[in-house]
Design a protein around this nucleic acid. Structure first.
Length: 204
DNA sequence: ACGATGATGAAC
DNA sequence: TTCATCATCGTA
């Protein structure tokens, strides 16, 4: 049985949380706007298959490496806070804040999937079709995640939350989890760009 | 392979 | 004031 991940899950190192989020289920509640369905809503659920951890002040690849700014201030909030930032003039990136309040730490959500063996959308028409949302900006576009969610807390009330899944429990320490360097952070220098803080769930 | 996109923050 | 960035898409 799935249950909603609470603050204590995120109240740890972003590296550990990034790894353990693989296989968990990102849930998004969206209001429907067509004339026929106005006033109703739908819930979309996707398995998390790719994450990256950004940990503390010292991490030169992290927005927080040079201290607190207007943009990165949600990273300093309590765990379970949503950090959405806008980059390259086009894209929104979804991060979940980890660790203690005041300690900048977050997990970037980089990939989602509906692939079997977990038929997450079984009740929805068209669920047979596999949707692969690979890429941090693709998934935010698809799930309509933007700055309106920035600095909010994960939860049903916010319309964005994460559930555990029996599959994710079996994954702890399994060889289905790949560890790699993080994407696009070469300029942070070799020490930080080479850290194996990107986690990918191998599905097959 | 390259240019456009155009917020945000750091370097100059 | 100029430049690079936790990226993606269209065009060549």
């Amino acid at each position: 049985m799935n249950y909603e991940l609470r603050k204590n899950f995120f109240d740890r190192s972003s590296i550990v949380v990034a790894r353990e989020l693989l296989g968990c289920v990102l849930c998004r509640k969206l209001n429907l706007t067509s004339s026929r369905l106005r006033g109703t809503s739908k819930i979309q659920k996707f398995k998390i298959i790719e994450t990256e951890g950004y940990e503390g002040f010292k991490d030169k690849a992290s927005h927080a490496s040079r201290g607190k700014t207007v943009r990165n201030s949600p990273m300093f909030e309590k765990s379970g806070t949503i950090y959405v930032y806008f980059t390259y003039g086009m894209h929104y990136m979804l991060n979940i804040v980890c660790g203690a309040k005041g300690h900048p730490s977050a997990v970037l959500i980089r990939g989602l999937s509906t692939s079997p063996p977990t038929p997450l959308l079984a009740k929805e028409r068209g669920a047979e079709q596999k949707i692969n949302l690979s890429g941090p900006a693709r998934l935010t576009k698809y799930l309509k995640i933007d700055k309106k969610l920035n600095n909010k807390k994960l939860g049903r009330k916010t319309g964005l939350w994460i559930e555990d899944n029996p599959t994710s429990l079996k994954l702890r320490g399994s060889k289905q989890i790949l560890k790699t360097p993080r994407i696009g952070v070469d300029s942070a220098g070799p020490i930080w760009s080479k850290k194996l803080w990107r986690f990918v769930l191998k599905e097959n």
